[in-house]
Structures are given as structure tokens and as C-alpha cells.
Design a binder for these strands. Sequence first.
RNA 1: GCGGUAGUGGUGUAAUGGUUAGCACGGAGGCCUGUGGAGCCUCAGAAGCGGGUUCGAUUCCCGCCUACCGCC
Length: 369
Amino acid sequence: MQFEIIAQDKKTKARIFKFKTKSGTIKTPFFMPVATKATGKFYDSNDMKKIKVKAIIANALLLSLEPSAAVIKSLGGIHRFMNFKGIIFTDSGGFQMYSEHLFLGVNENGIRFRNPFTGQRILCTPEKDMQIQLDIGSDVAMCLDDMPLYPAKKERLIQSVKRTIAWAIRCKRYHDKHNNINQLLFGIVQGGTDNSLRKICAKKLSTLKFPGYAIGGLAIGEPENLMWQATKVTLKHIPEKTPKYLMGLGKPYQLLKAISLGIDIFDSRYPTKTARHNQVFTFSDSTLKLQRKIYKDDKNPIDKTCNCPVCQNYSRAYLHHLIKIKEPNVKRLLSLHNLYFYQCLMEKAQESIEENKFHKLLEESKQWN
RNA sequence: GCGGUAGUGGUGUAAUGGUUAGCACGGAGGCCUGUGGAGCCUCAGAAGCGGGUUCGAUUCCCGCCUACCGCC
């Protein structure tokens, strides 16, 4: 069996999958740091090893622009290219409709982008996108989806769901035919915060029998209660015993809440983005903003319960100092700490599911908000 | 001692005889969600002291004080 549920929390829908890919097996729930262009921002594959990162997500569209899928393929695939031995997902490029810098337009054939390196216009079709992801050689590919901005009118949401379904069919057909590397393909459910559209999209994609499903188009500015509602509705209409990936989430307490609803996989730029703005997460003291004066002579590590390479070596005072002198390296250090925190958070989640105490962890996390 | 120049938030500065004296850094608080950033938002905080001119002075004038420069 490709994916096997090995533990199920009794009070919530939290569970643990054994998630098998061509690059190894990982236990859910897990969090993937974003490595869009085959690197972390301010940290590299070697750093990832030190902070327990077992899976990351890169971006097929952006890598196809620079250095190109052909180059990555000729160098032995993305794992060798960036020297990361864990599991690599590739995002399709649908989300780049959000990028005014790249996005030109969308129609039934695909999404039009401008290549910022050459100025050339390109059309990203479901078939091309699948071939890029196969060439890159990721472990899990994502379908090309049509993601509306928030807020979107109902007509736009309907159009997005129709296209996302049509493209998912095309992605699946192409991928089934050309996948000779044992890559997995996940479908992505759209529908904004509209319950009926979420339901339609989820049910239709379920008939395509993807090995896993993602929920897309959330955490993009909609009220949080609507986000949870859309998540629940979507989950209700996709097969329960498949891995679920909530794309883009999020904040620590949000991850746990999502797990309690039955989500297994996450990715987000949130921990690194906030790290670059000097905010760090802790289990012992809630979040800290290290640029604050109160840390000027604070001898403690960021989190005294943390075993990350940053907390093992540096005080808050030292990190505060690096921030004050605008030393770029501090962005790396804080990113490493926050990513380690997220990995620990997932470990805690797994342990508490195994011990049937997940609801307690979830309760605790409300204080972190 | 004489002459010159300058005194504006914590710091560096701007404009101005007439509502809330602008900006930057620093300070406090908030934001960041399938990565265009080292970003964005909000708030607090100032006219050296005394006198004069004026309806009204941070602005013009005088004295004092302080700082810097030059000269004996």
C-alpha cells in the first residue's frame, strides 16, 4: 500500500500516514519549507539537514524559467541538482497567477506568463507543466490549477473550478502516460470560500483517483472562519484515506487546527518570512520580536527548550545585536530556528496522535495565538 | 578676551511671521500564509533661557547660556 494510516487520534480527525515516495518514506503530518528556486532563502540544503527538514517544495514554473527543466534533468534531477536527499514536491505554477510580476493572463488552454529573465511570453499548459515536473524529477507533482484572487466574484470562482477540473483531467492523462519515474501527482481543489463550489470541485477531482489531494486558494486574505469552513467542506468530499495537503498554511496554531480536521501536509513561507522580519517562535515564551530593546542584554537562547543549532550557540542578545547592525546572516539564523520549530511542532503532533493526546496539544496551541 | 556661525523630538536634519512644525534613524505596538526583498502599517516624542517688536514669534531684534571655527 502506497499510503497507510498507522495511527488515528480518537477525539479529532488527526492521523498519521506512512507516506511513501521514490525518495523515501515520511510520516505525516509534515511541514515543507519553501524552496521555490531549488534553495531556501538565506539557507541551503546543508542547513536543511541540520534542522530536521525531510521534505521541501520547489516551484516547477519558476525553475523552468531559470535554469530550465532541461538543465535540471541533465544534472540528474532536482535532488542531485540542489543536493537534497529528502522528499521534494514541486508546485505547478498556478499560484504565480498571484504574481503581478509574472502573470499575463489565463484562458482555457493555460496560463500566460512573462519570463522575467528574457521578457518572452510563455503559455503554461497542463501538459507542459506535467512534463516540466517530470523532467525536474520531483517526488510529488501538483496539478496546474486556476487560482482566483481573494475576493473573487462568483462567476470567477465558477470559471476557476471548471478550469481547475478540466486541467486536472489533462494533467492526469498526460502524467499517467509519461510518468516513468514513479512520481506522484496530487490534485488541487479550488472554489474559494464558496461551499457549493468546493463540494463540486472536490467530488469531481475525487473521481480521478489521485493518490493525494491538495486544498488550494486559501489563506490568501479571506476571514479565517471562512477558511476553516472551506477546508471542512472540501475534506468532506474527498476520500478520507488519502493524504491531504493544505497549501500555504500557515501559522503554528493553524497547522494544529488543520491537523485536527484531517490535514496531513503543509507548506508555507510564513516561518521564513517572519524570521526575516525578526520574529521567532518558541514553545516556552510564545513569539518574540528580537529587534526589541529588551533583548539587548538577554543571555538566554531564543527558546531554552529548543535544540536547534541557533539556540545551542547564540543568545538573544547576540541575535539582537546582529539585527541592529543589519548583518544579513541573522536572517539565516532566525530562518533556521523557525523552521526547526515547525519541524518540532510536527513531531509533537505525531507523538500526541500516537498517544491519543492530540486534543491537549491543540488546546495548548491556542495560547500561542 | 574679541569676531563669526549655529542652537528644532533620544540622534541627525527640513521648512515656516498665521490651523495638527516635515523627514530619516532610534523607541513602542501591529502585519506577513502553494517566497520579487533587506518589506508594510500605526503610535509616542521637539523650538536652550530671558526679554523685545507684532493681532500673532520656532521664524525678526537684543541679552545670557552652550557648542564649533578663527584671531589675540
